[in-house]
Amino acid sequence: MIRLLLKRLLQAAFVAWAVGTISFVLVRMMSSDIAFRVAAGRYGYDNVDAAAAQAVSEELGLDRPGWQLYLHWLWELANFNLGNSLVSGLPVAHEIGHLLGHSLLLAFIAILFATLIAFPVGLYAAMHANGWFDRLALFASSILRAQPVFVIGLILLLIFALQLKLLPVAGFYDIRYVVLPGIALALALAAVSNRIVRHSAFDTINSAFFRFARIKGLSYPQSLVRHGFRNMAVPVIAFMGIQLIALIEGIVMIESLFSWPGIGHGLAHAIFSRDVPMIQGTALTMGLIFVVLNLLVDIACHVIDPRGRRAA
């Protein structure tokens, strides 16, 4: 357990270092032209002159020696001092606190929906392996898997928001706004994970211990609940760990599509407007969400499967 925590802590340190270094390079590459653009973002294009651009350049400390600046940069990062957004002028930490809640809500809803779709579908397909439902599930999964997640979102948006007008299009005001982005993301995740559930459940149902449970007189549902679920859950949850990459990447795209006020949208926006402190803050947060979710998956595997404990 301690080793698990240490491993993820090290990963978090890597994330911070990698994001910090890339952001630092970004700042170093900022020419006066970019300083001009930042100033324009802040004061509007009509109110910018060379003096304003110069002030921005001085604020970013573009004239000090490189290594000094780099160490200072990492030191600030280590102290969680993320600086102010170049566009809004507000502290990055404040902005991210605002965005983080929305992203976590979306991630939670997506994982919840994905589980609710993948488990019943995969389980039913495994119980009737190679039947029509199994083949249909395989076909649907292949089709969904061949789409980028934003195309799934786009199609849902066209059908449910713009044609049927059942759900709101974009933004976030109440809980109805989370339905479409949540389902789009969940479909993309479930397209892969329902097959994993199916294979895992198929192996479990056809295993010797499961047959023994049936032979000793347990009913099918009883065997499934007492002996089946726990065994089939381990590979599925381990796979969810791998799928977290898809989740984080999906969040970036889906948030941009639905104008969801979350971290992914913030990252894309910050890159577009060259807002380096925001780029660093949002990328760092995405990386840390990734690490924390990975840790949760590790812990879940640890709790469900006692066999791996000695090895880990």
Binding site: Q11, A12, F14, V15, A18, V19, I22, S23, V25, L26, M29, L244, I245, I248, E249, V252, M253, L267, A268, I271, R274, I279, A283, M286, G287, F290, V291
Partner: peptide
């Protein structure tokens, strides 16, 4: 340590 797309986005930020 970083999800692939986030890394690609950061690199995209280096040279738009």
């Amino acid at each position: 340590a970083l999800p692939g797309l986030v890394l690609i986005l950061l690199f995209a930020a280096l040279a738009p």
